[in-house]
């Protein structure tokens, strides 16, 4: 009996781990431009969310754009409505509900506003799936790189075009981990330049793992390549985009 329980537990564990799977999440934008996003009773607008103080209770209705991870009945999600983005960190979410979330799914999140090393987010949240769908188009943020205005678009789905891949160090186009201390499967870091300035981008391995298209593309980058990128404008002591798509020109 113990053996059977063990096998079942491992199977459940394996399924749980599989649920943390990391395929590119953001589908092409297909939401009509006339999309009307009516907020429910007691739900904040994005402006009200931004105005709330850290640790204030917040309730938002938003749309899943990317699923980063699920573990122990907690989900981490990149979400966005027409007015801005909401990063949902470790919200209570059953595995069954997590499976139902696809790019565009409308959810209601009740939690607390937090700021972690500059990243604005909702923590200790509860998720409720609602009816509605919206996939945000990628905002071209190329011209905002290096400006204070970039922070206004924190966590949004963005694109950067015409970037040049720079030497990350030692003649390498990318690193496994920030200092190349890692191995395949760890986060990828690569540097790109535009307008004479260099920026560091990340392929977050929880979001897009080593089997994902973006991971493999970045592993194949060469210094000097010209690329277009899409991803979520995550923040860690400054812009730290989590890149989900790279196209080599």
């Amino acid at each position: 009996m113990k053996k059977q329980i063990a096998v079942m537990a491992v199977a459940a564990l394996t399924l749980s781990l599989a649920a943390c799977g990391k395929q590119a999440q953001q589908a092409p934008a297909d939401t009509p431009a006339t999309f009307e996003d009516v907020k429910g009773e007691g739900v904040m607008t994005h402006a009200e969310y931004l105005a709330a103080a850290v640790e204030d209770a917040v309730t938002v209705e938003t749309y899943v754009q990317g699923k980063q991870s699920w573990w122990d009945n907690k989900a981490t999600l990149y979400t966005q409505d027409q007015d801005g983005a909401y990063f949902i960190y470790d919200a209570a979410c059953s595995e069954e509900d997590y499976a139902k979330l696809t790019p565009g799914t409308k959810i209601k999140v009740t939690g607390y506003k937090a700021e972690w090393n500059g990243e604005i987010e909702i923590i200790d949240g509860q998720i409720e799936i609602e009816s509605g769908n919206y996939v945000a188009p990628a905002l071209d943020a190329t011209s905002l790189l290096g400006t204070d205005s970039l922070a206004d678009h924190q966590n949004e789905f963005v694109s950067f075009t015409g970037l040049t891949v720079e030497d990350k160090g030692d003649g390498q186009a990318f690193y496994y981990n920030w200092d190349n201390s890692g191995t395949k499967g760890d986060d990828l870091y690569f540097d790109v330049s535009t307008g004479g300035k260099t920026y560091s981008f990340t392929v977050e391995s929880y979001l897009t793992d080593q089997d994902s298209s973006v991971y493999k593309t970045v592993e194949g980058l060469k210094i000097g390549d010209t690329i277009d990128c899409k991803g979520f404008l995550y923040w860690y002591e400054g812009a730290n985009p989590h890149i989900t798509e790279v196209v080599v020109k």
Binding site: Y189, S200, H242
Partner: peptide, 27 residues
């Protein structure tokens, strides 16, 4: 940059709590 952000609060802690029953089962 030490982390890319999401590993930050160490899912490990949660993993440990979650996995204990699995271990108990594999006793």
């Amino acid at each position: 940059m030490r982390i890319s952000g999401l590993l930050r609060r160490c899912a490990a802690a949660a993993l440990i709590a979650l996995l204990l029953p699995v271990l108990a089962a594999c006793h």
